[in-house]
Design a protein around this nucleic acid. Structure first.
Lengths: 252, 252
DNA sequence: CGCGATTTGTGCACGCCTTCACAAGCGCCT
DNA sequence: AGGCGCTTGTGAAGGCGTGCACAAATCGCG
């Protein structure tokens, strides 16, 4: 693993990890948002027995342009072999390391309404490196309920437990009116990443990252495209319209 | 409403609608993705009694830069009044018209596992212009179940019902392995917009729009930022790191 | 009626991201 | 050993989006 690094390639390989290396210079946000997609595609491929994969093949599996994929991977100083492709196992390790998935991060979930219940039971979290370690709700009627082996606690306990369990990521699935207060408590407890499902803007310190997922907004964006397509097909010119882009994915 | 339009402003106002006008020239995708956010902010403000709102105020409520907001609104030839601001009611009408929310679009939901159940019960859809008109699942055990006043039907019926009910938008909340087959049926039935919660890439004709929401990917992106922040604070230099951007929202 | 305060609409420049196109590198076959 | 085909990695160009800064427009007040 002491392979000589040529040129200006950055990135610390999983093996190289000497102490707490600075790590990621400045991966473009767009690249970061795609890495998880590549990772998922790679896992699928790994199950299918392939040993290596070409940028073309992986790009197809991830739904992106192959040039984009190569540039993305090159940013993390990746190990591909010209004329052959990428070693699937190695690449998986690489990406998981960069994303910090080798260390399981504790996640807590606040708000156990309709959506919160679904999230608590969602296999996708556990199977992809995240473990929900605590559930909270403000409703006394829900406190004490058992979900997926966890007991719902009162939101009063959030601050204390978040510190004790060293929770890094908080998921907010409360109604919008409660979200800001929950965010404040999370921030006070040292949580520095928040995934917000409530339809509202959260105000947090600059060192806290917030990602927002709003299901209704997704539908509204689709609605716009429906509207546009409808008004196009109603025109004399075309019938089914060539239409430019589709298959857009989430990501900032 | 026959107000003379000056300059090159595009956009057809709700009132202007003369027949099936071509409509939206080419709104930037980034703008489209933000319109729903503005709309939500406006609704909140409208409840608070304000009659007009400045770009600064609305921008703050929507969590964006005020210049960006003005440019976005200018793209749809919007009606603001210099020195005053935007008329809340009028702007709401405008945005809803552009997004095509004035015509209720029929939505169907496929897959009633954990997530599907939550989506079926999610108030955010109905309250923001969408109505789920049919539920489907492949599992015989789930067929016949009553959810929110709808009966779960077998997926066999999807094609027929989608045509009958004139469904425009399909939501896929199935496991990944089933998603592509469902998408194919939806497309055959004339559905031209798909919201995909399954962690996989769908392949569809060019005239069909797909938006993907993958909860695990969101967490992985947060994980990366956690990882980076951790390796920064471990460095000699800083303690809590100034950190560049946060509060990133979904949108392609 | 004119002036100043306020706020919109937008030209412009900058930076990020995407895409093309190609040189460099690697393995395999003869 | 040499050559050939294949694939990566990357320089450069183009497009898109953002944000600044300011001119144009409107209202209210004296």
């Amino acid at each position: 693993m002491s392979q000589q690094r040529h040129g200006v390639t950055p990135g610390n390989a999983p093996g190289d990890r000497a102490g707490a290396v600075p790590a990621f210079p400045d991966l473009p946000e767009a690249t970061i948002a795609r890495l998880p997609e590549y990772l998922r595609a790679l896992h699928n491929l790994g199950d299918s027995g392939s040993d290596t994969i070409s940028s073309e093949g992986l790009a197809a599996a991830a739904g992106v342009n192959s040039a984009k994929l190569r540039k993305d991977l090159s940013h993390l100083g990746s190990y591909g072999t010209r004329g052959v492709g990428y070693d699937v196992t190695l690449l998986i390790e690489q990406i998981e390391y960069v994303l910090g998935l080798d260390q399981r991060r504790a996640v807590c979930l606040v708000g156990l309404g309709n959506l919160g219940h679904a999230l608590a039971g969602y296999d996708g979290f556990a199977s992809r490196g995240f473990k929900i370690v605590a559930l909270f709700d403000a409703d006394e009627a829900k406190v004490g309920e058992q979900i997926q082996g966890l007991t719902v606690r009162h939101i009063e306990e959030l601050g204390r437990v978040a510190v004790e369990e060293n929770i890094a990521i908080g998921v907010i699935a409360t109604p919008a009116r409660a979200a800001q207060a929950v965010a404040d408590v999370l921030v006070d407890a040292g949580v520095t990443s928040i995934l917000n499902f409530a339809p509202c803007v959260l105000s947090v310190p600059a060192n806290v990252d917030v990602r927002k997922v709003d299901l209704a907004i997704e539908l509204q964006i689709l609605s716009f495209h429906e509207h546009r397509k409808a008004s196009l097909t109603a025109l004399p010119g075309g019938r089914s319209a060539p239409a430019a882009g589709n298959q857009e994915a989430v990501g900032s």
